[in-house]
Design a protein around this nucleic acid. Structure first.
Lengths: 138, 138
DNA sequence: CTTGAACCTCTAGTCACTAGAGGATGTAGG
DNA sequence: CCTACATCCTCTAGTGACTAGAGGTTCAAG
């Protein structure tokens, strides 16, 4: 019933070197080994790795995931800390969206230049002179 | 009329180690030196570094900036390539916004959990089970 | 001539992996 | 039992765009 690292990789959709990396940084426990030193995993590892992968997909940093995993070890405590971590992450995501949106608008305004010579290109002009930006605050 | 690296740093709003880094990777030319090997810059360097800083603020990668700077060296050519680079970057920005927005919605749905015990927390549940996501495609 | 801020080079660290070298193990088929 | 060979092992180095720090030198003001 034990899984090789390759089988775990397929089940959790996480690449083999990434699994070893997660073990190295302590996100995954060191698994049991065969006599020939090959890793063997169980269903707990599959669940834990799925949790990690999903959190990464949702953009959580490894440190945040480490904390979330630690918290799952104390199921009776209030989930206030879990919320704090998630809300902090959500705030970062919103902040990134805001900055990227401003950036997008700036770029949209720039590409309105019709194709001419580089010496007259609006894109180059804006890049060379910050004052030509719509919003000054970046 | 020549500037020290510190003066250039203040004028272009780029940190000193970053200027040296740009020189190392070839974005800035090697400047002249004093007898004691200290760098001295001119107004051309200020303009070039301002261009670089502004492009970085707009999220262009160093490789793209390198190409844009090369293109400014051929002012009579059509600015088609400049547009191509900018449009490609804009597309990436839009793509990032789309992914972050999906992510934000997912996180918003998760934090609707009212504070309970970790063993019943909706955030932990969703993280542990991808199937509970609103959108399956991440 | 002295002080001390600013400069110099070089190495290593950041984050979350990814790639590759060079070799060992495990398992399926014959 | 033996042979392929896919998969596994460890280790080092690379990615992007810087940032930090050590240990030493230069420049300009007073």
């Amino acid at each position: 019933m034990s899984l090789t690292i390759g089988a775990l990789s397929r089940q959790a959709q996480v690449k083999v070197p990434t699994i070893r990396y997660y073990e190295q940084i302590g996100l995954l426990a060191e698994p049991s080994r065969t006599e020939g030193q090959q890793r063997r995993y169980g269903q707990d590892d599959v669940r834990r790795l799925n949790f990690i992968r999903h959190a990464r997909e949702l953009g959580f940093e490894v440190e945040a995931i480490r904390q979330l995993l630690d918290l799952t070890g104390t199921p009776d405590r209030s989930c206030g800390e879990v919320h704090d971590i998630t809300k902090a992450h959500l705030a970062e995501v919103k902040d990134k969206i805001a900055r990227l949106t401003a950036l997008r608008d700036e770029l949209e305004a720039m590409v309105t230049c019709d194709h001419r010579r580089i010496s007259e290109c609006r894109i180059i002009e804006v890049l060379a002179d910050h004052g030509q930006c719509q919003h000054a605050e970046h």
